[in-house]
Nucleic acid binder design. Structure first.
Lengths: 210, 210
DNA sequence: TACTTTTTGTGAAAGTTACCACATAGGGGG
DNA sequence: CCCCCTATGTGGTAACTTTCACAAAAAGTA
């Protein structure tokens, strides 16, 4: 198949499959069918096969998928076969929590530098260096970092994003509740916890709860 | 129009429109067309009108939408015309950060109780009470809380979710990197920061960055 | 009131995404 | 070596979402 326009939902599901494959591996299961994988992660088996078909043929007919192999194939497709350095901007409550979150490391991400306009006295974990925001462009360029997380106040998010783009950042995960607008060449994803809660209340209100 | 199957993307956009309308209000703008609103939040104007048409007719032909009115209409549709109490389970790094996050309040949510299996010595903000997890079902039932945020370790997330469902929770925002499976009657939304970063690396890898 | 301008609300078309259903290929047993 | 069984890969279609395009309605003007 191997087309070039991959739907974003497909990419999200690849990540989901990866989690599921990790669990299977931990359980010592070596082979899995799309039916079983689908049951486990709540996705239609045909959907799984279609998703994988965008990138090649990974299964064996009559058998299924070899867990270890498929896991490595998906990791390769997603660029997760090596560690990514990540810069974090805005060492407040949320920023600090993310710096301390062990989960990223497990997924091959390393939050190696943080920036704040008041770096003094900020308690960052070992292995992470903190700098004043004015050093942002220099440090990111020097290290060749391509990924950044924005956890600043929403009034500064757009400005920070533009600076990051100038510093060579290619992917931004934005936690501030504003849509960031960059010309092009930079992928931005928004995680808006307010919106998430609002979607919940919508469905609760629809169903007449509360 | 007024159909009953509302697409989730539409609900997410309603929340986006709300943010944009707030900004317009702050700027003192009283009337806005779908064209202008669309330009501001990056959505096709026809899309906006279709989204709104699910719930009624809010505009005036030849004029546009009255900012204040539309804002109130959307808030009513989404059930945001009063404050929602929210329970948070798992007062670790992320949980603490969310408890301290001011943004929720601004959107009409109140994180009024938190639970942890080691509540002693946990520093929660004023206005929030912390209890031992064993009290969860009792406290949530007594207060009639319908919304919960899960920020526990992923190994406990499913278990916590089931307990919350038994306590009468109808909407769950899950930050643990596992798909939670509940029979029905409870809406679950997952925020998975690992997946978000992985989607970024996918697109970066596709485009040959790094 | 009649005419013009503007922008909504919506039917229909275009574009996407999900799912079914089956031909096809691989493995294993006799 | 052949046949049977199983589960993949995929063509076709159904379901859903987005966008176009225009009739209809409201407001302003004369």
């Amino acid at each position: 198949m191997r087309r070039f326009k991959i739907p974003e939902v497909t990419v999200g599901r690849l990540s989901l499959y990866l989690r599921c494959l990790n669990e299977l591996e931990e359980e010592g299961i070596e082979v899995v069918s799309s039916a079983e994988l689908g049951r486990r992660c709540g996705v239609n088996p045909a959907q799984i096969r279609k998703d994988l078909a965008y990138f090649g043929e990974f299964g064996t007919r009559g058998v299924g998928y070899y867990v270890k192999e498929l896991k490595e194939d998906i990791k390769r497709v997603m660029g997760l076969n090596k560690t990514w350095e990540v810069a974090l901007v805005g060492v407040g409550n949320l920023g600090t929590a993310l710096l301390r979150y062990k989960g990223f490391q497990r997924h091959g991400f390393k939050l190696s530098v943080a920036f704040d306009h008041q770096p003094e006295g900020k308690d960052v974990p070992e292995g992470c260096e903190i700098y004043h925001s004015s050093e942002m462009e220099r440090v990111i360029k020097e290290r060749g970092i391509k990924l950044a997380v924005i956890t600043v106040h929403y009034s500064q998010a757009q400005d920070v994003a533009e600076k990051l783009a100038r510093a060579g950042i290619k992917g931004i995960l934005n936690f501030a509740p504003v849509r960031i607008h960059l010309s092009k060449g930079v992928v931005v994803r928004n995680v808006d916890m307010g919106t998430e809660l609002e979607i919940l209340t919508f469905y609760l209100t629809m169903k007449g709860a509360r």
